[in-house]
Amino acid sequence: MSVLDFDNLTKRYGRTTALRELTLSIPEGSVYGLLGPNGSGKTTTLGLALGVLQPSGGTVRWFGAPATAATRRRVGALLETPNFYPYLSARQNLQIAADVKQTDARSLEAALETVGLAQRQREPVSGFSLGMKQRLAIGAALLGRPEVLVLDEPTNGLDPQGIADVRALVQRLAAEGRTVIMASHLLDEIEKVCTHVAVLHQGQLRSAGPVAASLATADRVVLGLAPGTAADVLRAALSSLPFVQDVRPETDGRVSCALAIGHSPASLNQALFAQGLALAHLEMRHRRLEDQFLELIKN
């Protein structure tokens, strides 16, 4: 079951199309990453989902129903920047958020503890650093234990400890079965915490699916025979194997290839050995998400 569905969602600003006919479903219980360079349409997508931007076309459905104020109360969200009344204290700001969400004020304490601001809850937000405001915004998003958490660049402005804390928090929420939708331009962040990823570029969806699947298809095996053996022999042998794809020459006479799903480097080694070829080099090269991402956003 999906918690959020976009159907042909489009957003135009004058002549610029910020998002073009996005159709995407976010499965329940997933940690879904929206990945893309700056200006790719990530925040626009989330702004449309959260009702602060008016779509030029298409629809948004939360929990299988049209988006309303009531459906948004089931979602905790941090969109773009932390938004607070600067003259109010951290606690007073959270109190207002709790009122709007119609949630129990007792969850304030837990939220402040979770984001490490319990000691400074009486201080005005105007004196907070960006990182502290970001943590407070995450605390506000957690109020009322929402079923879905939407986090737009959640580690912006955080120190390394803060970044690690947010990652741990997202993983903990995911372990509790809650859905997390996270926009980021940081590949590392998406790779470390997300189960699914959608890649956006120039307002268009380039790819969507489980992170593990997209990484698995991107892995390559690098092979080399003993020095002096002609590279053509290896290439010819690889081409004859049905589970080997995309054979490419590498440096030093080595050759790389991709393997069909269900086949391992060990089975490749066995097949080559059966043809009388003994490998002097066999290396699994994990193709990083970065490579995959750069390939996806190539025009």
């Binding site: 959260l50 009702g51 602060v52 104020a69 009531a70 109360r73 969109l79 607070f84 009344y85």
Partner: peptide
């Protein structure tokens, strides 16, 4: 205008208020 400047109108809609509210 404070609500626009602090982007708190935006945050309240995100948190579950309607524009009418």
């Amino acid at each position: 205008t404070d609500e626009f400047q602090f982007r708190t109108f935006r945050q309240q809609v995100i948190d579950g208020r309607s524009v009418g509210d």
